[in-house]
Amino acid sequence: MVHIENLVKRYGDLLALDHLNLDIKEGEVFGLLGPNGSGKTTAINCLLALLKYDKGTITLFGQEMHPDSYDLKRQIGVVPQNVAVFDQMTVYENIDYFCGLYIKDRTRRKELTEEAIRFAGLEDHRKMLPRKLSGGLLRRLNIACGIAHKPKLIIMDEPTVAVDPQSRNRILEGILELNRQGSTIIYTSHYMEEVEQICSRIVIMDHGRSIASGTTEELKRMIRTAETIRIEGIALTEEQLAAVKELPHVFQAGYEDQKLTVKCTSAKHNLIRVLNYLQQQEVSFGRVYSELPTLNDVFLEITGKELRD
């Protein structure tokens, strides 16, 4: 459905997109994950023919995308990163306005507008001006304006930034519902939990490049970390820490502020082995956590830095 090949975009000396390749299939919830400044929004803006790019090709629905590709644009819904609605118009008017740019039939437009209002949970706020809405409701309005016309392809650029958890959950559930209704979704975020929760396939971006891609499970299998063990309220000597590092399947161990973090490769009983060693050494400890790898671990292991930097 969307094909991006060798896309290069420079802002002066800054290389914003470095030979980016993306291939998005119909029916996917495709996640574009990366820290701020990794090139996600630039890629989206190039895709939408808003930005000039230096090299590469972009095709949507098998056609090259141009600023005047109105037939293609009719099939796309966009939810921009920053809230983009008219301050002078009510919730209903905003949604009706954007829906009307795609849907000519007045009756159909009205139905779709009502549906979008229900979808975003804005029934009680339809006559309110955007400035009267809370941050979460405003974000929902921003989404409703982009999806009311039921597009085949929905591009959501960090739609949950600065949203309260309740609104966030509602938005994420809504995105999955849109996908069930037949829309393909491109979802950019720097929140790994969200991407992990809703995306069927993910590309991790850094410095304008795609550094890894696949399903969540595939991405996690790419790295050595299979389990992270965290133990709090522990006092270790340097010799004991060194001994932990030598335990089977442990490839990294760190000790700081009475907290021990141990990273293990895929194996059974990693936690039991570590706890057995501490018991043998008669080391007392507080809380113990065993965590499966996250996308942050994937990002950390590939780039050497935290995703949320």
């Binding site: 803006n45 023919a49 808003l50 983009a84 609605v85 954007f98």
Partner: peptide, 18 residues
């Protein structure tokens, strides 16, 4: 003008002839 505001950028991706 898409480079002037988020709203303008949104207005620039709708299927309306300029």
């Amino acid at each position: 003008r898409a480079d002037q505001s988020a709203l303008a950028a949104r207005q620039s991706v709708v299927p309306v002839h300029r």
